[in-house]
Structure formats: C-alpha cells, structure tokens
C-alpha cells in the first residue's frame, strides 16, 4: 500500500543500516541479558538439582520456602547492613581523606599517603582476604597482638557473630578506599579556584567553605561513587567465601554467597534462582530510591 508513510528507497536503506549497526549490541543484550533474566525467573519455579534431567514444576514453592526461612531473612538484613556500613564509611572517609590530600601543604607526605592508600586497590581480593584472615585471628592474629600491646582487650573479629560482618566490611573499606579517594580528588581538582578565592575574600570559615562550596561542587562524583560502592557491596562474594564462608552462625552470609551456596553446594538451583530474583527486585528498588533522593541533592554545574 502506498500511503503517506511510504518511504523512499534510500530512506529505507538508511533505516536498515541503522538496524544493522544496532544488531550486534541488541543480539548480545538478548543472549546475555534478556534471555538469562527470563530463564532465571523460569528456573526459579522448578525444583531438582543441577544435574536433574527433568526438574519438577513447583510453582512458587521456592519463594515461599525462602520467605519463611529465618536464615534467608538474616541474609537479607546482613546484605543491607553490610552495604550501609561499607558505603557510608567509605564515602565519608574518602571525602575527608581526599580533601586533606588535596590541600597544598605537605606535598611529599601527601604523595606517600596517596600511594599507600591506593595500593590495596590493585591487590586481588582473595589475597587481601587471606592476609586479613591471619591478621584478624582472634587468638594469635597480629591485630590482636597490637591491641594487647597497647593495653586493649582482644577483639574477636571474625570469631564472633557480633563482629564478623563488621570485620569483613572493614577489609572491603580498606581495600576500596584508595580508588574512591582518587575519583573524589579528581573532582576536587576540577573545582575552579575562583570560587575559593571569592570565599576567601569574604573571610568564610574553612568549615563553611567545605560544606557550602566543596561538597556541592563534588556532589555528582559522590553520587557516582556511592552508586558504584553500593553495587560493589551488593555483589560481595570473594571476601566472604575466603574469610568466613558465611559464618559464624550465618552472620556474614550475604545474598550472592547464599545464591552460590544453594546453586552449587546444596544442589538447589531453583531456590538459588528465586533468591536471584529477589536480589534483582532489591537492587531495582534501591537504585530507584537512590536516584530519587539524588535528584534533589545533587548539584550539576
């Protein structure tokens, strides 16, 4: 039919070219994102183990058993606490350290500190975890020997369910801090000096300058880094796997580790997929909230 919407030959070719160029990305997205996502939801409705040939359809049973499980509730709260602790501490420390390093005094010392802080970022997490497993040993670990030498009581670190999650978070913060400091320092250096000069002429106190000028000017970077840090803490796996295996008493078991354990160790991929779907929902909600909050708080130049 030749209507008003009919396209000329060249125009059609132009459009076809567009589709062709987009095709590789679309195909990859379908194969590696959309299809697995659908399969994740589909598989979460079945029982059986990884090698069962015909898994049984169980409906929402995997979800109900997850939601009824006290262990899973704990896993969810562990994940949230861990994320909150690492993201907040990392952000606060990163901003403070970056601001300090960015000041023009003690250039030599600053360079040294910067190197020291950044180095952990390039070490593999597994090595770092193994190292801290020794350092944090509750009885013979170096950290406790130091604490004792300074006259403090021994700290149980990974041995007690009350402190284990915090200890794992501490390692993550130690390792990740340098990377975030680097990003925030880059943002700090982009703030035009004229703004500071104006503040100086008005005799603005240093603290006020920091909160009224520095922070708003780097807020887009803080948003970006906090998003990245949240992502990283949601997917925490290697340090948990090496240092605690989710213990003691399930106190360091987080969502991704839980998914791994149920899929591969206990042979219940259905339940693991159900937990995967819950993780997906979780991350969607948190992302939404984070972006809503940031809309009102982030200042773009």
């Amino acid at each position: 039919m030749r209507g008003t919407t009919a396209l000329s030959k060249t125009e059609r070719q132009e459009r076809l070219k567009g589709y062709l160029l987009a095709a590789p990305a679309v195909v990859l997205l379908f194969i590696f994102t959309v299809y697995p996502l659908c399969y994740l939801i589909y598989r979460s409705l079945f029982g059986g183990n990884l090698i069962t040939k015909d898994p049984k359809f169980v409906g929402l049973e995997n979800y109900t058993s997850l939601l009824e499980s006290k262990d899973f509730h704990q896993v969810l709260s562990n994940t949230l606490i861990y994320t909150a602790v690492t993201v907040v501490l990392t952000m606060v420390l990163a901003v403070v350290i970056a601001a300090w390093l960015n000041s023009k005094k003690n250039r030599r010392l600053n360079e040294l500190v910067q190197t020291c802080i950044f180095t952990p970022h390039i070490i593999s997490m597994v090595s770092v975890s193994t190292l801290f497993l020794w350092l944090m040993d509750s009885k013979n670990g170096l950290l406790n020997i130091l604490l004792n030498a300074l006259g403090f009581e021994s700290f149980p670190f990974l041995a007690s369910p009350d402190t284990a999650l915090f200890s794992v978070a501490l390692v993550t913060i130690w390792k990740g801090l340098g990377y975030y400091v680097l990003l925030i320092m880059a943002a700090l250096q982009n703030i035009p000096t004229s703004v500071y000069e104006a503040a100086e002429m008005d005799d603005t106190p240093a603290l006020k300058t920091f909160f009224k000028i520095t922070l708003p000017m780097i807020s887009p970077t803080i948003l970006f880094t906090s998003v990245v840090a949240t992502i990283a803490s949601f997917k925490v796996f290697d340090s948990i796997s090496v240092m605690t295996g989710g213990g003691p008493l399930n106190s360091t078991n987080t969502l991704v580790y839980y998914i791994y354990e149920y899929a591969f160790r206990y042979g219940k991929p259905g339940q693991a997929c159900a937990a995967g779907v819950i993780l997906l929902v979780f991350v969607c909600v948190i992302t939404y909230v984070q972006f809503q909050v940031s809309k009102t708080r982030v200042h773009y130049q």
Binding site: T33, Y39, C273
Partner: peptide, 12 residues
C-alpha cells in the same frame, strides 16, 4: 543487577 543475575545463570 541484571548482569549479576545473568552471570550466575550463565552456568545453569
């Protein structure tokens, strides 16, 4: 999140 879920699903 999607990627993460995919990654764990890929093996399956």
């Amino acid at each position: 999140a999607i990627l993460l879920s995919c990654a764990m699903c890929a093996a399956l």
